[in-house]
Design a protein around this nucleic acid. Structure first.
Length: 277
DNA sequence: AACCAGGCGCATA
DNA sequence: TATGCGCATGGT
């Protein structure tokens, strides 16, 4: 089987090339909220407590200052390079609408974020828009996250958030979501929510388990499963995907997406938001 | 100035 | 089981 990506060492970091990797789309399509694309196309942001700068370059992306070892042990997994998107996307392209979406935004990958970070982020996302979600998440991190040598704030631990309490979260201006963030933190800290247990459950049971947290409904639960627990069969249905389902797939997702509904959802979501399907 | 934003809890039937 | 409404905040 063909290799999913190739890696080249340079003095400035590693260069990653792949037919199925568009870093800009992947990091700026609404699945993670701590990345920004600057005017010149450079990308920078945080995953957990790691800062990363990515520079598009000839034939790929320079992961600035990243060693091969760091890539292999962390970023490879974060960008889901263990999965063959060329195979998955090839299969999904059997559906005409998905083909359109894949052609419009090729190279989106599902990020494997920390479960707690995903849970907290998608609680914040509810009835909210992406710029403001980013603002709230950023204020949460700078308020309670540990700072590295360069001053980049890590995503705060559940216990740090719990300790702050609802009143302590006031400065992040999360509105009615603050109490949900705290209840989620409480649930994680107490062990009532056990991500490793949940990740071993069938999809429906895993969703039910996550929905026990106040402020977590089906949409947020599926997002946590997809973006935080690597369950690419998870299928978050938001207002956009709901429209897609009604217009394109009234009798359910096509068979060619079986097992990868979440990946299909991400392509459809992005294409729909940009008016391409 | 109303309306909307990657929803959810709660009340009501 | 299925609807409908309010919710904090901020941008159009």
């Amino acid at each position: 089987m063909k290799k999913e990506y190739s890696l080249k060492n340079t003095p400035d970091g590693v260069i990653i090339s792949s037919e199925c990797f568009d870093a800009t789309l992947t990091l700026d399509c609404g699945q993670a909220f701590r990345w920004t694309v600057s005017g010149n196309g450079d990308i920078s942001g945080m995953a957990g407590n790691r800062f990363l700068e990515i520079r598009p370059c000839d034939g790929g992306y320079l992961f600035s200052g990243v060693t091969e070892e760091q890539f292999e042990t962390f970023w490879k997994h974060y960008f889901d390079f263990e999965r063959s998107y060329s195979e998955i996307c090839g299969t999904m392209a059997a559906d005409p609408s998905l083909r359109k979406a894949l052609d419009f935004c090729p190279g989106i990958r599902i990020l494997r974020q920390e479960p707690w970070e995903a849970l907290c982020s998608f609680i914040i996302s509810q009835n909210n828009n992406i710029p403001r979600i980013k603002g709230i998440v950023e204020r949460l991190c700078s308020l309670l996250g540990e700072k590295d040598d360069s001053g980049h704030s890590a995503f705060p631990s559940a216990s740090a958030v719990l300790e702050a309490g609802v009143d302590g979260l006031a400065p992040i201006r999360a509105g009615f979501r603050a109490k949900y963030i705290i209840s989620a933190a409480q649930s994680v800290v107490s062990g009532e929510t056990d991500f490793s247990l949940i990740s071993s459950l069938p999809l429906a049971d895993a969703e039910k388990e996550l929905c026990r947290i106040k402020g977590v409904g089906p949409k947020v639960a599926q997002c946590v499963l997809l973006y935080g627990l690597g369950r690419c069969d998870a299928f978050p249905v938001d207002v956009w995907v709901k429209r897609i389902m009604e217009e394109l797939y009234p009798s359910g997702m096509p068979g060619c997406t079986k097992g990868f509904e979440g990946i299909a959802q991400q392509y459809l979501f992005h294409a729909k938001r940009n008016g391409k399907i």
